[in-house]
Amino acid sequence: MPARDLTLLENAAREAGEIAMRYWRQDPQAWDKGGGAGPVSEADLAVNAYLETAFRAARPDYGWLSEESADEPSRLDAAHCFIIDPIDGTRAFLDGQEGFSHSLAITTGDRITAAVVHLPARGLTYTAVADGPALLNGQPIAPADHPIDGATVLAGKPSFDPAFWKNGVPGLRREFRPSLAWRLCLVAEGAFNATLSTRAAWEWDIAAGSLIAERAGCRATELSGRPLRFNRARPLSDGLVVAAPRLHGQMIAALSPIPSTGFPG
């Protein structure tokens, strides 16, 4: 089943990319969702409408959770559920940058079993299933092993607030990419050493990337080190730490046991 689901996700991701590229750098209509949720555009909604129609037709018994759809409590009773971010990195998309992605995942119970993160403007497609390798454009990927000193971490500025660290921020170097799903994949392929979010993270931002990172050889957990779980009633994780096992353990040990705060991001 995961292999069949992955094929479905891959085919849909390519079509989603074609839809998004018709709007990219064409000044699409956009507006703020309010409440700190950020912008949404007509491209997000067009991609979401396509994916929902295609996936519901192909897997009518699967649940549906998407950033751009009203939540349906019935998903909690489904054995499998789609978890979708139609365009992850909408701000970058609207700015004409290439670093936006389509994040598509399927759960079995509370675990991700098939995942695709597709960046159409860059021609990158990351994939994984629960019992297989993580791939980038069909080739296996693996993280880079690095100690905490000098590690390069993809994170927003709030994550480097000393309040989140037991003894101040370690000797980390901060980088940033607009799509959280892509950040997880960049760690999975060894381009960066870790991804960190001290803020709560929506499931649709991290579902696909977390499986890809894990199947590449990373550990992907909440700030506490607890495993990530998905298709929950409140679809938020308590922060995020993703890295190869040694660095992951060092980062968990260095972080303060302070609950994540603020809006997801």
Rank of each mutant, 00 (worst) to 15 (best):
G123A: 09
R22H: 09
R111F: 12
P73I: 08
I212G: 01
R56F: 12
R215P: 01
A181P: 02
S210R: 03
P158R: 15
D238K: 10
R56Q: 15
H80F: 12
S179K: 04
D44C: 04
I258W: 10
E214A: 13
A37I: 02
G109I: 04
R122Y: 05
L8Q: 03
I84K: 00
L240I: 03
K166P: 06
A201G: 05
G225R: 04
L196D: 09
A37R: 13
G99R: 05
L196M: 11
A191T: 09
L76G: 15
N11S: 07
G35M: 11
P227V: 05
A200F: 14
A151T: 13
R22N: 09
K157I: 05
K166S: 13
Q97R: 08
S237I: 06
A213I: 00
A134N: 10
R173W: 03
E98D: 14
D85N: 08
L76T: 13
H102T: 04
I87G: 03
N231Q: 11
L172T: 01
P235I: 13
A3H: 11
A78L: 03
G96C: 07
P60Q: 05
V116M: 08
G99T: 09
A54Q: 05
L8Y: 04
E10Q: 12
G38I: 12
L154P: 10
R25N: 12
Q139D: 06
A115P: 01
H80R: 14
T152Y: 01
L124F: 00
Q29V: 13
A49M: 09
R199F: 00
N167L: 02
T127L: 03
F176Q: 11
D27W: 12
F263D: 12
W31V: 09
T195S: 10
W31N: 10
L180D: 10
P158F: 10
G38E: 12
L104Y: 14
G168S: 06
L136V: 13
I106N: 08
G249N: 13
A30C: 02
L119E: 15
A12K: 09
R229D: 04
F160A: 13
L247R: 11
V241T: 04
E203S: 10
G265I: 02
R229T: 08
A144G: 06
L228P: 03
A121I: 14
F93D: 11
E98H: 05
G156N: 15
A207N: 03
N167A: 14
P28W: 04
N231C: 07
T125R: 11
G239P: 06
R14I: 15
R173S: 08
D205M: 06
N137K: 00
R59I: 08
N193C: 07
I19L: 08
W31M: 12
R56P: 07
A12D: 14
S260P: 13
T53A: 15
I252Y: 05
S179N: 05
G265P: 08
A70M: 02
D238F: 01
Q250F: 00
Y50N: 04
G150C: 07
W202R: 13
V47L: 04
F192A: 12
A208E: 11
A144T: 09
S41A: 10
G156S: 15
W204V: 09
L228N: 08
A144C: 07
E67K: 07
